[in-house]
Write a protein that binds this DNA or RNA. Structure first.
Lengths: 235, 235
DNA sequence: CTCACTTTGTGCATCGGTTCACAAAAGGAC
DNA sequence: GTCCTTTTGTGAACCGATGCACAAAGTGAG
């Protein structure tokens, strides 16, 4: 009994599950807006684009929040997932690099909507320092450490050119930041305990291109044809 | 023997491997620029931020392009990976939705660099239609089908508001597009055979927040404390 | 209360991916 | 040629994630 409970809630929600929770949360918010009080795992799974068994197993990692024969209470589940993800608190985010991408991120509504607050914009280019973007003043990168400390920034978004990213990462880690969202196309090296998530637009396109090519090959060449190995090419 | 060979090259490179190939490619390009002729799996793995056994297994799925005791020929490996990913051909990309994000994408250098060519920008807002961005004229969304056909667009990037995304997806799929990169925060439903990759900025932040919260909990509460389940909360 | 129905939570088989660890292959010294 | 060193390519064990399928738990009708 005790065992059962702690087994479910014990430290350690699978990473794959964590990555899907925001998806469920979004689907649930849509449902709440449409006035639904409860939802079955089947319906929620469809809305989130996953299989219902997976959804149930994911939710079971948070606890036993459903009612058999009925489903899940929408509002309650929203609260539980939000709490698990840490969205019930306010996160101050700093965006470093105010080029096209940084600007887009600063204006992106999805950040603010869920507990995230853009607390600072920083750039090295004197040309853009002082600009007003999304209600914020762009500050000079020299202020990086001071700004992070002063405004309690705990998550840093890197939208700098590739060459600057590692340097900025080192500096923010040195002031105690342990969560970085990196848009620069470089492999950052950071000490143990610092979490990095990487978003790489060009990699996504390359993966699509791979599959697109496969589909094209299949059309013409037929399935699993030979001539797959066009005698070695010299360079 | 024959078995061995076809086993390696046969259709079906693991998805996880495909997702890492672009990473290797980038590391290799850096090395080529610095004039390195060959590289060991160990060195390349470090540069790409992965474990060397994984790298070797990944590369073994493409074929046997290394030399034992020596390593891999940098240029040759670049060529082989590029070919496998389909980057030796030219891909025409259309970006739909020219808001802040669409603009950032249009100007993003990483696209052009690897066989991708932004061939069209489209938007529904008459205010932005006609604008000149990154050397391209923004066209009206009514032209969507015509533009895709005329310019041989095979990959579409969705940077529209959430509400418009499904509608645009339906239209591009109807004209034969089978690869979509979606930045809109919605679960798109598309027919079998259409590949979708999703980039969701807010989800990435939520995942970071989850881990950040965990780290904070660990600091204060100590490891795996009780009081983890603050008696049920009514709503 | 009992029965029929719904839907959750999970044990179990399975699958894909990661990592280890080593035999096989290549190169260089002598 | 033989021996020693380096480094690949891969068999095999392991690990986490997925999905099936069902018992357990709940609702509602009569």
């Amino acid at each position: 009994m005790i065992r059962r409970l702690s087994q479910a809630r014990e430290r350690g929600i699978p990473e794959a599950t964590v990555a899907r929770l925001p998806l469920y949360l979004r689907a649930l918010n849509g449902m709440a807006e449409r006035g639904l009080a409860t939802v079955s795992s089947e319906d929620l799974a469809v809305a989130a684009g996953v299989n219902s068994a997976k959804l149930r197993k994911d939710l079971s990692h948070l606890g036993s929040y459903g009612t058999r024969g009925v489903g899940y209470d929408v509002e309650y589940l929203i609260y539980q997932i939000s709490r698990e993800l840490g969205l019930t608190q306010d996160w101050a985010v700093a965006i470093v690099g105010v080029g096209n991408l940084g600007r887009a991120l600063a204006n992106y509504g999805g950040f603010v909507s869920r507990g995230f607050r853009v607390a600072a914009l920083l750039d090295a280019d004197p040309e853009v320092v002082g600009d007003h973007i999304a209600g914020l003043n762009v500050e000079h990168i020299d202020e990086l450490e001071a700004v992070i400390r002063r405004r309690g920034v705990s998550i840093v978004v890197l939208a700098t050119p590739a060459v600057a990213a590692q340097q900025v990462a080192d500096r923010v880690v040195a002031v105690g930041v342990t969560s970085i969202l990196n848009f620069a196309p470089v492999v950052l090296s950071v000490p143990e305990g610092v979490d990095i998530r990487k978003v790489d637009l060009s990699i996504e396109l390359q993966i699509l291109a791979f599959h697109e090519q496969r589909k094209a090959d299949r059309m013409s060449g037929g399935p699993a044809m030979a001539e797959e190995w066009p005698e070695a090419v010299d360079l």
